[in-house]
């Protein structure tokens, strides 16, 4: 059997009395695209935080390409090839979208070193510059590439996060509500970017979304969370037909 790209086993995280995650075991293969849905507070963001190491789970394990990663610090996991966007934006204030991408290219490429800086070899390389420009074009940020991120509207800021997560590209992309705050045109861009990624066999995408229309055009497989548990996992049609899902999430039959 092929080793999974990502495998969580019995992942549990409690905050006081709230069980944000309980016994979550998920498997994701390389190149797969999965949608994660669930009511607010179901534990979706907590799952991402545990996978990347922002939070330390109380129990359970996370493996990436067959090796345990749950003891690694965040940046090491990221360098293994996990990119992520944050639901609550974590942009580098004071920098422009282009600088966001350049610094990410550098960090991801691991080519930077202090001695190179001091010798004057630390400036962005032409390759890094052109890759950054390509990504900016891809997500439609070319016209604001050199404005400070604080001057961007909410939707544009979210696209900066998306572009930053795409640098690499990573083997695993974790997107936390990428479409919230986007307008119709930008959502269309998002869909085209993600479906292109979805066709690549080397990039797996996990996308948390509340926009069901969007997510069901993108993914074949849906995972549904409720109160920290996986209550359904399967094809989009099967999951959306599930009565438990409809009750918990869609508010139907309440």
């Amino acid at each position: 059997m092929v080793t999974a790209l990502l495998q969580t086993a019995g992942l549990t995280k409690r905050f006081g009395r709230v069980a944000a995650l309980s016994e979550v075991s998920l498997r994701l293969d390389a190149g797969e695209t999965v949608g994660v849905i669930g009511p607010n507070g179901a534990g979706k963001t907590t799952l991402f935080d545990c996978i990347l190491g922002v939070l330390q789970p109380d129990a359970g394990s996370v493996s990436f390409e067959g090796t345990r990663i749950d003891r690694l610090p965040v940046f090491r996991r990221s360098l293994l090839g996990i990119g992520r966007t944050f639901q609550r934006l974590e942009l580098f204030s004071g920098m422009t979208p282009r600088e966001h991408l350049l610094v990410t290219e550098r960090a991801r490429g691991r080519q930077g070193a202090l001695w190179k800086d001091v010798l004057g070899m630390g400036r962005p390389t032409p390759r890094e510059k052109s890759e950054a420009a390509d990504l900016l074009d891809l997500v439609g940020l070319a016209d604001v590439a050199d404005a400070p991120v604080e001057s961007l509207s909410l939707g544009k800021s979210r696209l900066v996060e998306l572009a930053r997560a795409l640098v690499g590209p990573p083997k695993l992309l974790l997107l936390d509500e990428p479409s919230s705050g986007l307008d119709d045109a930008e959502r269309a861009t998002l869909v085209s970017v993600l479906s292109r990624l979805g066709r690549r066999r080397d990039v797996a995408v996990v996308v948390v979304e509340h926009d069901l229309d969007l997510v069901s055009t993108l993914v074949e497989r849906l995972v549904v969370f409720d109160v920290g548990r996986v209550i359904a996992d399967g094809t989009v049609e099967a999951v959306l037909a599930d009565t438990a899902v409809r009750r918990a999430y869609l508010g139907v039959g309440r």
Partner: peptide, 29 residues
């Protein structure tokens, strides 16, 4: 030179967001 180079850019990122920096692979510590 440090400011223009990798270290300076990474420090700028860190100043903006520590979480974001770690998530892009910067060794914050």
């Amino acid at each position: 030179l440090v400011q223009w180079g990798t270290t300076g850019q990474e420090l700028a990122a860190l100043r903006g967001s520590e979480r974001g920096s770690a998530a892009v692979g910067i060794d914050v510590r």
